[in-house]
């Protein structure tokens, strides 16, 4: 039996949700916030570099031992990325079609730079993420850094041998090209997030006049925090942090 609710049949709820512009924005917001959570957790892991090689390597090794969990996260992320990008593409195509003839003079009053360029910052972040994943696959590094990451091994306190992540990071960021590229990448990501977080709250309806200013500050604050956190590592390496590990 079909239940009618709000004039639509319950069976058709999901298609309608996916079909509507608001539903798509819901999906973008939820997947966006999901990826944001990953980015935040990822940063807490990365920042352990400042606690020394032992802590970081042990953390990395610990992660690899929880392979099942890792796969769950990977699959989730892939689904999120896929949904986020596909919705973005569909929405953008629809948005373009909604104005077939552009203005001779277009000013977009009130729109911040981040807000106007989401599709571009998003696309570049996607490229960056793709490269970033390769960055960690050992073979791709040889040409850039002159190091073979496969040879970077270390022995943890409990005696197990594993990848020496600390040395990999330092070696990678010792190359100015890699560092600059990385900083630009996370910069773009955070630029994307500075609007994205605010927009996600808006799309999910989690915003009103009372919290409006707070949401705005939260969004830009979070974006800056992430940027400073991520960028601190290559900057620290450039300043000489951890160089001794390479020798």
């Amino acid at each position: 039996m079909l239940r009618k609710a709000g004039g639509i049949e319950a069976m058709k709820l999901l298609p309608q949700f996916f079909h509507s512009s608001l539903g798509k924005k819901y999906i973008m917001a939820i997947t966006g916030l999901g990826m944001l959570a990953f980015v935040a957790v990822h940063l807490t892991g990365n920042l352990q570099i400042f606690l020394g090689p032992e802590v970081l390597d042990a953390y990395a090794h610990g992660l690899h031992r929880a392979e099942e969990l890792l796969w769950v996260i990977r699959v989730c992320l892939l689904v999120f990325i896929g949904l986020h990008i596909s919705m973005a593409v569909v929405l953008t195509l629809g948005n373009r079609a909604a104005r077939p003839i552009p203005y001779e003079r277009s000013r977009l009053p009130g729109a911040s730079h981040a807000a106007r360029t989401m599709i571009w910052s998003g696309s570049m972040v996607a490229v960056f993420v793709a490269y970033h994943l390769l960055h960690h696959s050992a073979k791709a590094q040889v040409s850039l850094t002159g190091h073979d990451f496969a040879t970077f091994q270390t022995t943890l306190a409990d005696g197990t041998t594993c990848h020496d992540v600390f040395r990999m990071v330092v070696a990678g960021f010792s190359q100015p090209v890699v560092s600059v590229f990385y900083i630009v990448g996370v910069g773009l990501l955070c630029h994307h997030l500075s609007h994205g977080i605010e927009a996600a709250f808006q799309s999910l309806g989690l915003r009103n006049r009372v919290w409006d200013a707070a949401v705005r500050k939260l969004a830009s604050g979070a974006a800056w925090l992430l940027f400073v956190g991520y960028a601190s590592i290559p900057v620290a390496v450039a300043c000489g942090y951890g160089r001794e590990a390479l020798n």
């Binding site: 512009s21 924005k25 909604a98 808006q202 006049r209």
Partner: peptide, 28 residues
């Protein structure tokens, strides 16, 4: 019509100063 990307242009030009918190309310 296109979708909302929360640029805020609409509230910037609205002659009656309607704010985009109404959009958040509609999303809710």
């Amino acid at each position: 019509f296109g979708a909302c990307t929360v640029t805020g242009s609409c509230e910037a030009v609205c002659p009656k100063n309607i704010r985009i918190d109404v959009i958040a309310r509609m999303n809710r």
